[in-house]
């Protein structure tokens, strides 16, 4: 089992690395074949006052006149060691620019993620055990409600109510504790909806299983039944959803940062798009791909640990024929 897991993990790691490299190549190629050459545009900007000769020199020095495959190779070999080159606007290393804004976004995203999980599990618990008269049915409507309200609307409402009316935070201090918390709530709510939807469906399924009744018969309290018996099997499919929800967090953080006036990856991307700062964009896109792949990798690696029934692929030549299998194949084969 242990050996099987290690070889499985090694395989998934290798796959993840290949995906990241392909994502990098893809963005590089897309940027290269896009019409309009932002680099020459910048250089030819009359304000910069470069002569044709100087432009050619700069381009040659940067290696931009070489064939695309050669450029790709150079860029790729830098990327592998974590070097994204210099920003075209500020001439500072892209890694430095990103490092400046990354902590703020990471704090926002992880707080939002924690809130999303907490909210989803709370809603999930409520749908199972809240008495009907206290709005169990209402609770089931929450995920679709959360999904249908865009998060900038939630953000604006939160700013209006808690920033201006209640006065918990001031909009000019976007990094204060309360401001960050409410930004995270705005970002976390739509993400929680996706998790809650899957969680509720699975809790409904699991709570009807015989083992849940047997565990109740063993005298467990509702809280223990939920926490020890229902939550884990119901969370297994959620692991996959969470991996997808991370994408939502990344996308949502761009909008949330703008609404709450925070500096972060979102504002950096916004600036870079408007100034066509290609190295920064390439770096951010690659980083997003890395995050995505890593989260899915973690999900894949965690899954067999959470569910003891999962059999790892490989090592299986014979599928034991259970009665059900044989019936299905038998009737299928014999009537076809």
């Amino acid at each position: 089992m242990k050996g099987a897991y290690l070889s499985y993990a090694a395989k998934r790691f290798a796959q993840a690395a290949v995906v990241i490299l392909l994502a990098y190549v893809f963005t590089f190629v897309v940027v290269s074949i896009l019409p309009g050459d932002p680099i020459t545009n910048v250089l030819r900007d009359p304000q910069n006052g470069f002569s044709e000769d100087q432009i050619r020199q700069i381009i040659a020095a940067q290696g931009l006149d070489r064939p695309i495959p050669v450029q790709l190779w150079a860029s790729l070999s830098h990327f592998v060691i974590g070097d994204f080159g210099l920003s075209m606007r500020s001439s500072r290393p892209v890694t430095t620019l990103i490092a400046e804004v990354l902590p703020s976004t990471l704090i926002l995203a992880s707080e939002a993620f924690a809130i999303a999980l907490l909210l989803a599990v709370t809603i999930g618990y409520g749908t199972q055990f809240l008495p009907k008269r206290l709005g169990q049915g209402l609770l089931r409507g929450f995920p679709s409600l959360f999904l249908s309200v865009p998060n900038f609307v939630i953000g604006l409402v939160l700013i209006h109510v808690f920033g201006f009316q209640v006065g918990l935070f001031r909009v000019i201090e976007p990094n204060s504790f309360w401001a960050t918390l409410f930004a995270s709530i705005a970002l976390g709510i739509p993400v929680s909806a996706r998790i809650a939807e899957v969680l509720i469906a699975n809790l409904d399924k699991e709570s009807e299983q015989e083992y849940a009744a047997v565990a109740r018969g063993r005298g467990l309290t509702q809280m223990r039944l939920f926490a020890r018996h229902l939550l884990k099997p119901s969370s297994l499919p959620v692991v996959t959803v969470i991996a997808l929800a991370i994408g939502e967090l990344l996308g949502g953080s761009l909008i949330t940062e703008t609404v709450f006036g925070r500096t972060g990856i979102g504002s950096l991307v916004q600036r870079s798009v408007s100034t066509q700062d290609l190295p920064v964009l390439q770096a951010v896109v690659s980083l997003a791909a890395v995050v995505f792949v890593l989260v899915n990798l973690i999900a894949d690696l965690v899954y067999p640990l959470l569910d003891p029934r999962v059999k790892l692929i490989g090592n299986r030549r014979y599928r034991p024929t259970t009665a059900d299998d044989s019936a299905a194949t038998a009737s299928a084969a014999m009537t076809s």
């Binding site: 015989e210 083992y211 063993r218 884990k232």
Partner: peptide, 28 residues
């Protein structure tokens, strides 16, 4: 429940939580 009234269910294969060990459930 459990203390005074015990319950032996019909289908043993589905009557224990599949993702927890027997021991963890026996502890309950």
């Amino acid at each position: 429940r459990g203390r005074a009234i015990g319950f032996v269910p019909q289908d043993p294969a589905n009557s224990l939580n599949p993702v927890r060990t027997i021991g963890a459930q026996a502890q309950e």
